[in-house]
Amino acid sequence: MLISAAAAALRQVFSPPMRAILLKSLGLTLGLLIVVWFGLTRLIQWFQSSHHIAADYPILDTIAFFLAGAGLFVALAYIMPAVSILVAGFFLDDAAAIVEQTDFPNDPPGRPLPWGQALLYALRFAGLALAVNLVALILIFVPGVNLVAFFGANTYLLAREYFEAAASRFRPLAEAQAMRRHFSVRTLAGGAMLAGLMVVPIVNLIVPLFGIALMVHLHKGLSRKALLEAPAAERLR
């Protein structure tokens, strides 16, 4: 089920309707990162000039600015997935609707979250993703621990957030959470796939749209499985 869902999700990500959302999301993500980069580099220059580093030690000033810039590049690479999740979070309902309409045209359409709730969801998800990646950044000098912590935390986080985003379009959030826990092996396997993509530069930028497409397919498959496994009396209700 997971492999077929992943193949369908990958096909969807590069389809014309989803490609438009992807390009819009990537443009906003890169624009936001450029603004952050510009602001932080200006802040470093202000700090150096206010402490007269450039005037007193011009060579040290150049080296310090170069090292700070390189450090910012590494830091931004770590927070890039969180920024892309924040930006793409505003398009998840649109992406889920595209997958539902094209791959499940005979099923009832899902209900998008209210705008305010969708905004809070995107901010919460991005905040959690940022926290996970900052912890991984702090642990970067601890061999092995960094990757294990990053992969484990992202597996759970991505499985939970994307599956519940897809499932809550069709059922109350509490029911979506219960369903995720009931099928935890399958949902965590999907989260592990997404977490693996998160460590690949550039590729990690498609994770939000690939993730929601994957979980839409996974939710549809698990919903049918749950219906088949339910007692006959419950299916007739």
Rank of each mutant, 00 (worst) to 15 (best):
residue 10 L to W: 11
residue 16 P to G: 03
residue 21 I to N: 04
residue 24 K to Q: 13
residue 24 K to R: 15
residue 27 G to H: 07
residue 27 G to I: 09
residue 28 L to T: 08
residue 33 L to K: 05
residue 33 L to T: 05
residue 34 I to V: 15
residue 38 F to K: 06
residue 42 R to D: 12
residue 43 L to G: 13
residue 48 Q to S: 13
residue 49 S to E: 15
residue 50 S to Q: 14
residue 51 H to D: 10
residue 54 A to Q: 11
residue 54 A to P: 02
residue 58 P to H: 11
residue 60 L to E: 07
residue 61 D to H: 15
residue 62 T to K: 15
residue 64 A to T: 12
residue 66 F to K: 11
residue 67 L to W: 12
residue 73 F to M: 12
residue 78 Y to R: 07
residue 79 I to W: 05
residue 79 I to A: 06
residue 82 A to L: 06
residue 86 L to H: 02
residue 88 A to C: 15
residue 89 G to S: 13
residue 91 F to G: 00
residue 91 F to M: 06
residue 95 A to P: 02
residue 97 A to F: 03
residue 99 V to W: 00
residue 101 Q to S: 15
residue 104 F to K: 03
residue 105 P to M: 13
residue 107 D to T: 04
residue 109 P to N: 07
residue 109 P to C: 09
residue 113 L to Q: 07
residue 118 A to K: 11
residue 121 Y to C: 02
residue 132 V to Y: 01
residue 132 V to T: 05
residue 133 N to G: 03
residue 144 G to W: 10
residue 147 L to P: 00
residue 150 F to W: 03
residue 156 Y to C: 12
residue 158 L to F: 15
residue 158 L to D: 01
residue 162 Y to P: 00
residue 165 A to P: 01
residue 167 A to V: 06
residue 169 R to Q: 04
residue 170 F to N: 07
residue 171 R to G: 01
residue 171 R to T: 14
residue 171 R to K: 11
residue 172 P to N: 05
residue 176 A to Y: 01
residue 177 Q to S: 09
residue 183 F to H: 14
residue 188 L to P: 00
residue 189 A to E: 13
residue 193 M to N: 00
residue 194 L to H: 03
residue 197 L to G: 10
residue 198 M to E: 14
residue 198 M to Y: 10
residue 202 I to R: 06
residue 203 V to I: 15
residue 205 L to D: 01
residue 207 V to R: 00
residue 208 P to S: 11
residue 211 G to C: 11
residue 212 I to C: 03
residue 213 A to E: 04
residue 213 A to G: 08
residue 223 S to I: 04
residue 226 A to E: 13
residue 226 A to R: 07
residue 229 E to M: 12
residue 229 E to C: 04
residue 234 E to A: 10
residue 234 E to V: 10
residue 237 R to H: 06
